[in-house]
């Protein structure tokens, strides 16, 4: 009956993805997106790929924090007051309970057998493959991340100087 859990998580992913497209306020869409990512991380954890699931969760948390900070900058709070639904607290509580359950699942659930025993996707195995077979990709991605950070910082500093602020 392990497949039942997969189907539950897949249904959660698809429902959250559908809601993130259809829901009107952008903050709710971002929360639905978080729900979808956490459900995918739950599926990955069930497949014995816990490191990848935690990497996915941490990257999503970081990007969503930046997203929410940006949304707070550009948000129209008067419009937010109009678009808050009546049962917002119930909805947010439901999402919170779902997120807690899925996070607890990441810690306590053993792996799912798909056909035979699941392969070993532990951190040493992944690290070995990453640095033995995909060393060039790692270097390219590291250069990409570094250039991206430097470019963004340079852009923001230049903009600050143009506005007359202290860089």
């Amino acid at each position: 009956m392990y497949a039942v859990e997969f189907y539950i998580f897949a249904a959660l992913v698809l429902t959250a993805a559908f809601l993130s497209v259809t829901v009107r306020p952008i903050l709710y869409a971002a929360f639905c997106q978080v729900q979808a990512v956490v459900a995918v991380a739950g599926i990955l954890a069930g497949l014995n790929a816990k490191f990848v699931s935690f990497a996915l969760l941490s990257m999503t948390a970081a990007s969503m924090l930046v997203f929410l900070m940006f949304a707070l900058i550009v948000f129209d709070f008067h419009q937010l007051q109009k678009t808050v639904p009546q049962k917002a607290s119930v909805t947010s509580l439901t999402f919170f309970v779902l997120l807690c359950l899925q996070t607890a699942y990441l810690f306590f659930k053993p792996q799912w057998p798909i056909k035979k025993s699941a392969p070993d996707f532990s951190l040493p195995v992944l690290g070995n493959i990453l640095y033995a077979d995909y060393g060039l990709c790692v270097v390219i991605f590291a250069a990409l991340v570094l250039s991206c950070m430097v470019g963004i910082s340079a852009l923001l500093v230049r903009k600050k100087k143009e506005n007359g602020g202290n860089a």
């Binding site: 790929a49 930046v66 992944l126 991206c148």
Partner: peptide
């Protein structure tokens, strides 16, 4: 395990894309 390595790269790329485009 190669698929999981590619998944790691995709997650990394998503984070870069989000932060860079938000800036």
């Amino acid at each position: 395990a190669s698929g999981l390595i590619l998944s790691l790269f995709i997650a990394c790329l998503t984070g870069i894309q989000t932060v860079a485009s938000l800036a």
